[in-house]
């Protein structure tokens, strides 16, 4: 189950990345290589094994429903490439 050129293009689209023709070829080559190796996980017998969810076995860690206001909008917006009226500005989205 080798990854195809079309799949590389599709994956790049999902990830919002742009690949030049040359990069597509290179990525295809490297991904085949890496996925071939990654596939070795399928050699491990995992019958009756549950998949891990995260690194710990803990569960039910919740927060109390109590308000703590951050209260500093300016600092939250201070890294914005473009802002207007206290909001992040982007090209028009319909």
């Amino acid at each position: 189950m080798d990854i195809s050129r079309e799949e590389i293009i599709h994956i790049a689209k999902l990830a919002n990345l742009k690949l030049t023709e040359a990069e597509i070829e290179k990525t295809l080559f490297n991904m085949k290589d890496i996925l071939n190796f990654a596939n070795t996980v399928n050699k491990v017998n995992t019958d009756n094994v549950y998949e891990s969810i995260g690194a710990t076995q803990n569960y039910n860690v919740f927060r109390k429903d109590e308000i703590k206001e951050f209260g500093d909008r300016d600092i939250l917006l201070s890294n914005a490439p473009e802002q207007e009226d206290g909001m992040f500005k982007i090209p028009k989205v319909i």
């Binding site: 927060r63 308000i67 703590k68 206001e69 951050f70 909008r73 939250l76 206290g86 909001m87």
Partner: peptide, 16 residues
């Protein structure tokens, strides 16, 4: 822990 209150000045019910 930001409030869920409807409305408010834009981006004031926000935190990192």
């Amino acid at each position: 822990s930001c409030p869920t209150e409807f409305g408010g000045e834009p981006n004031t019910h926000c935190c990192p």
